[in-house]
Amino acid sequence: MRLPWLHGDSPFPPTSQALGPETDAPGLLAAGGDLGPERLTEAYRHGIFPWYGEGQPLLWWTTDPRMVLPVAEFRLSRSLRKTLQRFLRTPGCEIRFDGDTPGVIKACAAAPREGQDGTWIVPEMVEAYVRLYRLGRVHSVETWIDGQLVGGLYGVALGRMLFGESMFARRTDASKIALAALVAFCRAKGIALIDCQQQTAHLASLGARPIARPAFEAHLRQAVATPGPERWAYDPGCWIHLGLKPDDQPPP
Rank of each mutant, 00 (worst) to 15 (best):
R86S: 08
L206Q: 01
Q148F: 07
P57K: 02
M161N: 12
W60A: 11
R39D: 00
A192G: 11
L149Y: 13
Y234A: 13
I48S: 06
T23Y: 01
K106A: 00
A107G: 05
A204N: 01
A188H: 11
G159Q: 04
W5G: 03
Q116K: 10
Y44R: 13
K189Q: 15
C108V: 06
F168N: 13
M1P: 01
D34I: 13
T41M: 04
R131T: 15
D98Y: 00
Y129K: 14
V104F: 14
H139Q: 05
T200W: 12
P214A: 10
L35R: 09
G152P: 06
G164Q: 04
W120H: 04
E142T: 11
L19P: 00
R131P: 02
F216E: 09
I145A: 07
V138R: 07
G118W: 07
G32P: 01
P13Q: 03
M1T: 06
F49E: 00
P65T: 09
R2W: 08
M167R: 01
P214N: 12
P250S: 11
D9K: 12
P102A: 07
F163I: 08
T41W: 07
D146E: 14
V122S: 03
E230R: 15
P252M: 11
G237D: 05
Q198L: 14
A111G: 02
A223H: 05
P236I: 05
G243Y: 11
T101I: 02
G27W: 12
P236H: 11
A128V: 01
L206N: 01
G27R: 10
V224K: 04
R231I: 05
E54Q: 06
L19Y: 03
T41V: 02
P112D: 11
A110S: 08
W232E: 08
A181E: 09
L242G: 05
